[in-house]
């Protein structure tokens, strides 16, 4: 949902406001709150709301657990607030003046509130990495792209950076494709390779959570399959939250799925349950293709 032409100093991010489905939809079933998780958590989103600078409430009182080293998917129709929620987790909305958060995003196990007044958004971004919709490698070499996050952290020792770069590229399953051209431009890679490079860039500084914002929406099916395999592999070592427009993708890669609609989280649960036995009528409408 990021418009390339907008400027960072504009008061707001470009956003798509929720559009009512065009069929008569009188369903008023309240959202189903997530149940208690038995698995260890990496973060808890509690009673979270988000307001854009113009006063538009894009997220309404969302509760959602994020499981440690699992993949959590957020699905829902365009404009439901899924990207907005994701971008709240690493405080991207702080780049634009006037946006406001309410509620808590607690990072476990320390219990720090990421959106609290005492948290520095820049420090939050060191702990929570992000990969964007469109591959956005920097206009630099492949090596420097991956090293960028390490340099921000003040790491200067060449051997440490070399090691971390190789490690990240291996984890992103792109090492074999780029190991001979680390000093080549990142723009010489294909779209799918660029996106995996961006994943490596996000992984290199060892974030606690990695956010993926529709990472395959600009990729062809083969490149998409590679990224999906990668997401599943990575979930053994890092906590992942992925926003996707593609329900099959959520079903394939995630352990938990959250369904959002008009800024509210309608249902949250084990991916299999959400797709085979949804409890909320809107979830059922969505996954059976009645809107989206």
């Amino acid at each position: 949902m990021v418009d390339d032409n907008m400027t960072l100093t504009k008061t707001n991010t470009a956003k798509v406001k929720a559009v009512e489905p065009d069929f008569d939809d009188e369903d008023t079933t309240p959202p189903i709150k997530p149940g208690k998780e038995r698995e260890p958590l990496r973060a808890r989103i509690e009673d979270f709301s988000f307001f854009y600078a113009d006063g538009f409430q894009a997220i309404k009182n969302v509760d959602m657990p994020i499981l440690d080293r699992k993949v959590t998917a957020i699905i829902g129709p365009s404009g439901c607030g899924k990207s907005t929620l994701l971008r709240s987790l690493n405080r991207m909305h702080d780049l634009y003046p006037g946006n406001r958060y309410e509620g808590r995003v607690i990072l476990e196990p320390e219990g720090e509130n990421l959106i609290g007044p005492e948290s520095d958004p820049v420090i939050v971004r060191l702990r929570v990495g992000m990969v964007f919709q469109k591959p956005n490698p920097f206009p630099k070499t492949i090596y420097e792209n991956v090293a960028a996050g390490l340099r921000v952290r003040g790491i200067k020792k060449r051997s440490m950076i070399d090691e971390a770069v190789e490690n990240a590229l291996r984890r992103a399953a792109i090492w074999d494709e780029v190991k001979d051209k680390l000093n080549g431009s990142a723009y010489d890679l294909s779209g799918g390779q660029q996106q995996r490079l961006c994943i490596a860039r996000g992984l290199a500084p060892n974030p606690e959570i990695l956010l993926l914002d529709e990472p395959t929406s600009a990729l062809d099916p083969i490149a998409t399959a590679k990224v999906e395999d990668l997401v599943q592999e990575l979930s053994e070592s890092v906590t992942i939250v992925i926003v996707t427009h593609n329900m099959q993708q959520a079903a394939r890669v995630s352990h938990r799925t959250a369904f959002m609609y008009m800024g509210e989280m309608m249902e949250f649960g084990e991916t299999q349950t959400i797709f085979t036995n949804p409890k909320h009528p809107r979830t059922e409408n969505y996954i059976t293709g009645r809107y989206g």
Partner: peptide
Amino acid sequence: MAVTTDGPMGAASKTNQEAFDAVSR
């Protein structure tokens, strides 16, 4: 080269105080 995976405390380990300092500088 072994692919390192990090535990829950991975990124929050010692090196991070340095990172926080670098960023605030």
